[in-house]
Amino acid sequence: MGFLSILSYAHKLIEERVAPGDTVVDATAGNGVDTVFLSKCVGMQGTVHAFDIQEEALLQTHKRMAKELPEHDKVFLHLRSHAEIKETLPAEAQGQVAAVMFNLGYLPGADPATITVPSSTLPALQGASELLRRGGVLTIALYTGHEGGEQEAAIVRDWAEQLPQRQFQVMEYRFINRHNHPPYLIAIEKQ
């Protein structure tokens, strides 16, 4: 058995910290894979908020949820920027979120010109870090093979390095001998 992919590792970190009934966030819904995963982690009692600026992404997420977990009725799809996470979640979720997942880059199969950018990603990450409960986790999958990807990843990494170590643990998971801009993961746990 080989090493876990970055997404499998992100899922492992989240599974270890999320329990049925928790509130979680998929900050970049995309095709809905992480929304379904998070829904399974929190169970029928839990709440999932999924964000995307592309209607197509939310339609794909809705279809995936309808196929894989049609009975889950606490999944809220928001056609909004991830920068609006903190303002969108209800007051009772503030400081109580168990996990937030980000996949930065673009939606596979959609317009590759529609990408995440630091001007919205940094406020989103800051808001997400404030929403986390103690012991909560924030995962950031960084895809760098598209125009602007390396720059966004560097800015996100700088942001994560500046988080106060008394409040957060930050780790990086990557494969260093792969070519063609392999993605990598930054994971943040709130102390």
Rank of each mutant, 00 (worst) to 15 (best):
A10H: 07
Q60T: 03
P20K: 07
D111K: 10
G109E: 07
V137W: 04
R80L: 15
Q191Y: 11
G127V: 08
E71L: 05
H78L: 13
G21N: 10
V36F: 10
Q191I: 13
N103R: 06
F76S: 00
R64H: 00
T114R: 09
I6N: 04
G43V: 04
R80M: 14
Q167P: 02
G105E: 05
V36L: 10
L77P: 05
A91V: 11
L131I: 06
R174M: 15
G95C: 08
A10E: 06
V42D: 02
M171H: 11
L59A: 12
A124L: 12
R166G: 12
A29M: 05
A19N: 13
D34L: 07
V33I: 13
L125Q: 10
L58S: 09
V170M: 01
A187N: 06
Q169T: 13
D22N: 04
A124Y: 12
Q169M: 08
L163F: 01
L58G: 05
V100Y: 09
L38V: 12
L122C: 12
L58W: 00
E189W: 08
I155S: 03
N31P: 09
M101V: 12
A57G: 07
F3E: 14
Q162K: 07
H181D: 14
L89I: 10
T139R: 07
A19Y: 12
K40S: 11
P123L: 06
A187M: 06
V24M: 05
E150V: 15
L13M: 12
G109H: 11
R174L: 15
H179D: 14
A153L: 00
G95L: 04
I85L: 08
Y9Q: 13
G21F: 06
D26M: 03
Q151W: 00
R157P: 05
L122Y: 14
L13P: 02
R178H: 13
D73T: 15
L77E: 03
V156A: 01
E84S: 15
K12Y: 13
I176P: 10
G43T: 02
D26W: 01
T28R: 00
H11R: 15
S8G: 12
H78F: 10
C41Q: 06
D34P: 08
E152R: 00
N180Q: 10
S39C: 15
V48Q: 07
N31K: 11
I176G: 12
G109A: 08
R133T: 03
A187H: 01
T23W: 02
R134Q: 13
T114D: 03
P20C: 07
G148A: 05
E150W: 00
L38S: 06
P118I: 10
A187P: 03
G145T: 06
V97A: 15
P108E: 04
L38G: 08
E130Y: 04
E68K: 11
M65A: 04
H62W: 09
K190I: 02
